[in-house]
Simulated assay, not measured.
Amino acid sequence: MVVYLDHAATTPLLPAAITAYAEAMTVVGNPASVHSQGQNAKRMLEEAREHVAASVNSDPIEVVFTGSGTEAINLAIKGLFWARAPRRRILVAEGEHHATLDSVDWLAAHDDALLEWIPLDRLGRINLTALAAAITAHPDDIALITVIAANNEVGTIQPLAEIAALAAAHDIPVHVDAVAAYGHLPIDFAVLSAAGVSAVSLSAHKIGGPVGIGALILGRRTAVVPLLHGGGQQRQVRSGTQDVAAAVSFAVAASAFGAGQRAEHARLEGLRDLVIAGVRRIAPAAILNGDPDSAGRLPGNAHFSFPGCEGDSLLFLLDVAGVSVSTGSACQAGIPEPSHVLRAMGRTAVESRGALRITLGRTTTEDDVAALLRALPAAHAQAERAGMADRVPRA
Rank of each mutant, 00 (worst) to 15 (best):
M1F: 12
M1A: 12
M1D: 09
M1N: 08
M1V: 03
V2F: 14
L5M: 07
D6N: 04
D6F: 03
H7G: 01
L13V: 07
L14F: 11
A16G: 08
A20M: 01
Y21I: 04
A24H: 13
M25N: 13
T26Y: 13
V27R: 11
V27S: 05
V28M: 13
P31E: 15
A32Q: 12
V34F: 15
Q37L: 11
G38W: 11
R43P: 03
M44E: 14
M44Q: 15
M44N: 11
M44G: 13
E46K: 03
R49H: 09
V52Y: 10
S55A: 11
N57R: 01
S58R: 02
P60I: 04
I61T: 14
A72F: 07
A72W: 03
L75Q: 10
I77T: 07
K78C: 09
F81Q: 03
R84A: 13
P86S: 03
P86D: 02
R88S: 06
R88D: 02
E96F: 08
L101Y: 06
V104C: 10
A108I: 04
A108T: 01
D112F: 14
D112I: 08
W117N: 06
W117V: 09
L123G: 07
L123M: 01
G124T: 09
G124P: 01
R125H: 10
A130G: 06
P139T: 01
D140T: 11
D140G: 13
A143E: 04
I145P: 00
V147M: 00
V154I: 07
I157S: 00
L160W: 00
A161E: 11
A161D: 10
A164S: 00
L166E: 08
A167H: 06
A169C: 06
H170C: 05
I172N: 13
P173L: 05
P173V: 03
H175Q: 08
H184L: 04
D188K: 05
S193K: 15
A194E: 15
A199R: 05
L218C: 10
G219F: 13
T222P: 05
P226R: 09
L227V: 05
G230L: 03
G232C: 15
Q233K: 14
V237Q: 09
R238M: 14
G240R: 02
G240K: 00
V248N: 10
A251L: 07
A256E: 10
G258Q: 08
A259N: 03
Q261P: 10
A266Y: 02
R267Q: 08
G270C: 11
I287N: 05
G290S: 00
D293F: 11
S294A: 12
F304I: 01
G308F: 06
G308D: 12
C309E: 02
L314K: 04
L318D: 01
D319R: 10
V320H: 04
V320K: 05
G322V: 07
S324V: 09
T327N: 00
P338W: 08
S339A: 04
H340I: 02
M345R: 05
R347L: 10
V350I: 12
S352H: 10
S352V: 08
R357K: 01
I358L: 14
T359Y: 02
T359G: 02
L360W: 03
G361E: 05
T363H: 15
T364W: 14
A371Y: 08
A375P: 07
A375C: 00
A379E: 06
A383R: 12
E384H: 15
D390W: 14
D390H: 15
R391F: 14
P393M: 07
R394W: 15
